[in-house]
Structure formats: C-alpha cells, structure tokens
Design a protein around this nucleic acid. Structure first.
Length: 375
RNA sequence: GGGGAGAUACCAAAGUGGCCAACUGGGGCAGACUGUAAAUCUGUUGUCUGAUGACUUCGUAGGUUCGAAUCCUGCUCUCCCCA
C-alpha cells in the first residue's frame, strides 16, 4: 500500500510511504542488496542503526540454489531465517538471465540455468519463480523477466519484451491462484523492459500499468548504455506508470543516478555499487568518489565522513580504512560497506526532506555536481 | 681452524654467451565494478619518451669475446657443514 505524500513543484520528484507487512518504507528509498540473505559484511544491527535501511534485497535464484527453498520454508520464511524484521524484496532471477547468459537457455516456458555453484540444470518458469518467492516470503516480489543485454537491436528488444510480457501474465495468474505462506502480504511488481527504445518502453509501461499490481519496476537499464539514454527512458516510462503507485528503478546506480532518477519520479532503487565497490575500495562521499587505496590517503587521519550521521563514518580515519582495505582485512570491507550504505541512505533521506520542504530542485542540481566529482 | 655454497630489480626467485631491461610470485602504484558467479578482475612496476626508440643495470674492480647477468682473475660480503 503506497501513499503519495508530496510532489515536487519543479521536478517530477515525489515523497511517499510504502506500507509493508514488515514496516513502512519512506520514499524515495535505496535498498541495500543482500543477494544471499546477507548484505555482505554488515550486521543487522548496523543496517538498522548506522544505515537505517527499511528494506533490503535478496535474490530468488541464489536462495533457491543455497540454502534451498525447503530450508527457508522450514525456517518460516526469509525474515525468520535471517532474523530480519524489516521489509525484504526479492528479485526474481531475471537479472541472472542476463548476468549468467553463458549458463542459461531461454524458452517460452522459462529459463534453463546451469548452476554457477555445481553446474546442475534448473528450470525457472514464471510460475515456479512466484512459488519460490512465496516460499521465501519477501514483502515485495518481482515478476520473472528477461533483462536484455546492451547493445541490443530493436527486433531482439521487442521479442524479449514480448516474452517478458507473456511471463508477466503468468506471474500475475500464479499470484492470483496462490496465497502467502506465512500470513503476510506480498506485493508483486511487474518490470518494464524495452531496452533503449522509446516506442517499446511505452508499450511495456502500458502493459505493466494495466496489470494492476501495487507497484511497478523499470528494468533493463544501467546495463552499459549512456546515463542520458537511461534518463530518457525513465522519463518516457514514468509518463505512463501510475502516479499513485511506487516506481522502482532496478539496479541503479551511482549517487548522481539516484538523484536524477528521483527528479524523474523514481521512488525506489537498489544497486550493488555501495557494497561491492566499497569492498573494492571505492568510497562515496558528499565531496565525491574516492579510491581509498590511493596513496594520497595514506596520511589522511581525518574521518571518512565527519558530517555523517553514521558513527562508523565519523570514527574511523581514511588512513586507517586505507590500511585495512590494502591489507585485505575484513574489517576494511565492513567499514567501507557500512559507510557507503550510510551515505546512500542518508542521500535519499535528504532528498525526501527536500521534496517535503520544497527545496529539492536546486539542492539536487548542486548536490549532483558535488558528488559526481572523482576526488 | 678445515670444507662447501652463493651474491640478480622493493622482497623472494628464474635465467648460465646473443631470442634479457631480465620468467614467475609477493609487495607497490593505478584502473574497472550499476536488479552480486566479485573481500573480485585488469593494467603497470630501471630512467627518459606520445610512440618508435635511446640510455644506465644482475656484489665490486679488471679481463676474454663481434657480443657477458651468464666465461676468467682479484677483492668485498653472506650462508651452510665439520672441528
């Protein structure tokens, strides 16, 4: 259940609240990625206190392979399994159709995967993916789609989108004929595809809007196309997607991508960047992006981010974090991840405040300029 | 005191007449990463140069040779074994 609280006067930004069985999500929001039922290296305590994430992602494909759907079912769903009482969103495995392209085969029926763990064969169908997500028990679940690669010609993009639409119908039907396993409401979000083609994106947005689901997602972007092209597609799609339902831009992105997305009417984001890039030494700060492994931070004993509300960002110095990351110490990856996520979450929280107090437009322009710098 | 082995770039370690500015690993430096097969991957690492290329290197001082990290001699240093 989503309520729109306020729309920005200048941009298409909005502030809202999405109510789930596991708490309210104030939007715009960034959702940390926790593919295998863990945001790598981060305790729930810190996800709540330092980062204050109201919702995290998990992945259907990964959890299906390990630990397996049965174990999650026996645990009583993913929330109880991982002892996380806030909201969870599961991706359907559609992205793995793209990222594991070498290990899968697409048919009308679904996608046959070769497990990246042991090479075993598995068939993912729209119905099966809904069933697995019922078993996982996430609050928001995603339709099974094909995330088309980039570049991708119009003919393929169209064919792929049409397949995704037929799969969507099957997902919606399966949702209608099944019930949540743990008594908590689950919302299915369809996914707009159509690559970088405006005509296809329009058709796909119409299709998703017509499905009547409680929220909509935009997929197949930030797969290599220029950012401007992504922004154009967002604008095209958001003209069609219903205003009174949340819009989720999947897999995006950089801090600047987030603000540009919000300005175009996006409410929800997720991305591995703050976590994976953090583990690899890239830090996002209000002054821009830094590579903490660079020599220039070796003797910089100032805090990672003095102005952060996160105690971890305020406590540890750049020089110390650099030492940890370079030494391959696990604490380095943890601090980097927590800092980056805290930065992302506080960025979207500030965006929300700016929308609510009517200062989003100019703030966004200035902030995008500042955070896009490579320090 | 006697016998033996060895000194190669930041470290370790190949190389035993030309294909060697020198394998490889580590370390250093830099880059990539967007619904996570990623605590991963890539590049680079004598000096100068945009590149071609030029120049100085393999303990040290000489020598042999068209040509030496590689062969010979002196010196210096290190390590091992026996007493």
């Amino acid at each position: 259940m989503f309520s729109l609280e306020k729309k920005d006067g200048i941009t298409s930004a909005r502030a809202g609240v999405l109510r789930t069985a596991h708490g309210e999500i104030q939007t715009p929001v960034f959702m940390p990625v926790g593919t295998g039922a863990t945001v790598k290296g981060v305790f729930h305590r810190d996800l709540k206190r330092e980062i204050d994430a109201p919702v995290i992602l998990a992945n259907t494909y990964h959890l299906y392979l390990r630990p397996g759907t049965d174990i999650i079912k026996k645990a009583g769903g993913v929330h109880r399994f991982m002892s996380w009482d806030r909201a969870v969103l599961t991706d359907s495995g559609g992205y793995q159709v793209f990222s594991l392209a070498a290990n899968r085969k697409l048919t009308e029926e679904g996608a046959i995967f070769r497990s990246h763990i042991d090479g075993s064969k598995h068939l993912f169908t729209p119905e099966g993916v809904i069933d697995i997500q019922r078993a996982i028990g996430a609050d928001i679940i995603m339709a099974f789609d094909e995330c088309a690669p980039y570049p991708c010609d119009h003919a393929y993009a169209k064919k792929s989108m049409e397949l995704t639409h037929r799969w969507l119908d099957r997902c919606v039907a399966q949702m209608g004929s099944t019930e949540p396993l743990y008594g908590t409401e689950q919302m299915l979000f369809p996914i707009v595809q159509g690559s970088v083609y405006g005509d296809l994106r329009k058709i796909s947005a119409e299709k998703c809007a017509a499905s009547g689901m409680p929220g909509n997602a935009i997929g197949g972007l930030s797969v290599g196309e220029p950012a401007e092209q992504m922004y154009e597609m967002i604008e095209t799609v958001n003209e069609i997607l219903p205003e009174e339902k949340p819009r989720y831009l999947m897999g995006v992105g950089t801090p600047a991508n987030l603000l540009e997305g919000i300005a175009r009417g996006i409410d929800m984001f997720d991305c591995v960047m703050p976590t994976r890039n953090g583990r690899n030494g890239m830090m996002f700060t209000s002054e821009g992006t830094i590579n903490i492994r660079n020599q220039r931070w070796a003797e910089d004993f100032s805090p990672i981010d003095a102005g952060s509300h996160s105690e971890i960002s305020r406590t540890y110095s750049k020089a110390y974090l650099r030492h940890l990351v370079i030494s391959g110490e696990m604490l380095g990856a943890q601090i980097a991840t927590i800092h980056n996520l805290a930065f992302y979450l506080s960025l979207v929280r500030e965006a929300r405040e700016r929308i609510l107090d009517g200062t989003f437009g100019p703030w966004k322009e200035e902030t995008v300029r500042k955070i896009s710098v490579r320090v």
